[in-house]
Design a protein around this nucleic acid. Structure first.
Lengths: 346, 346
DNA sequence: AATGCTCTGGCAAGCGATTGCCAAATGTTG
DNA sequence: CAACATTTGGCAATCGCTTGCCAGAGCATT
């Protein structure tokens, strides 16, 4: 029985460019062009091909396409911790913009580990067209190496070797300090994040400088892991400093501190004030609502994608920017208040 | 100048299996086997090849591998909304398990839209080896069709056509109802989620039945989008029902209601009680902390991956399960309390 | 009528692996 | 030592699509 029709043959196999070519009576190359380079082919031929493709429910193979064209159509997004709401906003931003540009997003959690980050970078060199690296834990040298091998954009981690999107949190830290100063606080403690975090140093430096300029006594404690569970230890240590106001590396830690302070009977903001950072989901409805540093995080993700895409296809975009700084502002809620009178004379 | 050495040639190009073969003096097929089918080749040859591969910093091309082997090494995870913390946990679970199994995760946000979901499904048929579909908005027929074409596991959306991971929220809804009943509540309102959500109907049905059995008057309002911003409208409508206790479709809505109620001067739990669902990030530190239905969400993600992988490679796993029901429990916090006395005699 | 373009479409060579089949080498056994 | 098994490695065909190059057709220009 050699009478199998094309219909029968194609039943279980996915249709390929060849099936279309046969039915249309053209060469596969023509089909390829009609589908991915429309103006290269006659309108009538194209329409015919498109019709057949639709009929067959044809879906091009990314694999094959990638193999021959060298492009994969995928962008890898590396974040240190997918559970951290901060990164979720970034992911949402990248997802959004990537989808719009027809790219697939490969999401990888590097678990705040340098080696996983490096290994992922290595693999992705082959698997993706470009990489978005959020809050990288890598050293400058490692970063430079990675950037030299693959199109890359970093978020919240400046480097001369790749375009970067920065949230101007240091700027807002200064605002936060001024806010606290105007409320009468004279001793402020910065609750630091992971040592490997570039941001935490940047923030502390900003605070240190601004404090010196204003005659405020600034101290630093830490490092603490950026999780609510670190908040307990952080709160205890912070209290021991004698400061009346704390600025936390991020909202996660701040929220954890809030819980611990309540547990210990320390009132916020009557006894101490707390400022968080990032304005993540939850910062507005915790108890008390957290004064924090807000920024367009999702926008940062989108911008990173745009910058990466511009790098991939220099013809399309205009001047590829090397640096984008997102504005931030202090979102004052209820976790900050006047310095307690007693604190003035210890 | 034809004297370019191999070194020079290979400088900017990624090393391929062929480069290794040449250096090792063997055929590419041998290299391929040594790398992905070690026992098929002599130990000494293998070691030699591995060494050279390491030297060259060789990374196999997923594309090429996929083309010839038919497998892509990627699993697509479709969620209705990446911003919803509930899905964070699922994503974290899948990410974790997929990485462990050597798969890449393709994350797609279907934006609660049926057509995006369908379109993504179509594309992913070629791009991924399998699909994990969380809280699908599809009809049974659409789901059956999709499942027939591609290995698939659903989460929180039962179907006879694909293995499913279910969180036993309906069971816990009954617990919640009993909890409320024992606190003296006799009128309870269910604040429903999106009409297209399979879960919301399932939950309401469970409540309705349990309420009837216990002589509690249960009403339903909705639908509401699963966002905190829906909470305001939901709270207003809920209040109008005259019920003293509300069970929300999820924590997002519940948290939004909390805010609105405070705004309106309605005390929780003194005046009304609220129960959420999912125990998402934030449910424990909102004000007041939310009584909610907790479940091992991350675990659900992991289980889904296991079930999918078992389906892909039937030899490895044991009996591929068709259904996994994750246990849930009522997490009692401070948003539920005794029914107000006045409510007894309206 | 000759010349030169622009359009279209086909040919065929890859892209980088995998894998069925075969042959040489090596080992085992009676 | 012959006969047979088992390893081990090579050949070459694929996988599905892209793309450089070429040729014929259709037109406009001299």
């Amino acid at each position: 029985m050699e009478s199998m029709t094309e219909e029968a043959t194609a039943r279980d196999r996915m249709p390929t460019i060849r099936d279309i070519a046969e039915r249309a009576g053209v060469a596969t190359s023509t089909v390829s062009r009609a589908l991915s380079n429309p103006q290269r082919v006659n309108v009538r031929t194209r329409e015919k091909i498109e019709k057949i493709a639709a009929q067959l429910n044809y879906v091009p193979s990314t694999q094959a396409r990638g193999l021959s064209s060298g492009r994969t159509g995928a962008i890898a997004v590396l974040v240190p911790d997918v559970t951290n709401p901060f990164y979720f906003d970034i992911i949402r931003g990248t997802q959004d913009q990537l989808k719009a540009a027809g790219y697939t997003q490969l999401l990888v959690d590097t678990e705040e580990a340098t080696d996983i980050e490096l290994e992922t970078l290595r693999k992705m060199r082959r698997t993706s067209d470009g990489i978005i690296l959020a809050a990288s834990r890598l050293t400058d040298a490692q970063l430079a190496d990675a950037a030299s091998r693959h199109p890359m954009v970093t978020i919240n981690r400046a480097t001369a070797d790749a375009p970067t999107v920065l949230l101007d949190t240091p700027g807002a830290m200064v605002q936060a300090l001024e806010h606290l100063a105007s409320l009468g606080h004279t001793k402020v403690t910065y609750v630091g994040g992971p040592t490997s975090s570039w941001s935490t140093h940047r923030r502390w430096k900003a605070i240190e400088e601004a404090a010196a300029r204003r005659g405020i006594e600034a101290t630093r404690i830490g490092p603490y892991a950026p999780k609510t569970s670190s908040g307990a230890a952080a709160a205890d240590a912070a209290l021991r400093t004698g400061s009346t106001a704390f600025i936390a590396f991020n909202d996660l830690i701040a929220i954890g501190m809030l819980a611990r302070l309540r547990e210990r009977g320390v009132r916020v903001p009557e006894d101490v004030s707390i400022v968080g950072c990032d304005d993540i989901f939850g910062a507005d409805f915790c108890n008390p609502p957290l004064t924090t540093i807000a920024s367009p995080i999702e926008q940062a993700g989108r911008t990173a994608v745009s910058m990466l895409l511009a790098q991939l296809d220099p013809t399309r975009g205009g001047t590829p920017r090397k640096l984008a700084v997102m504005p931030t502002h202090l979102e004052i809620r209820e976790s900050t208040g006047p310095a307690p009178a007693s604190a003035k004379a210890p």
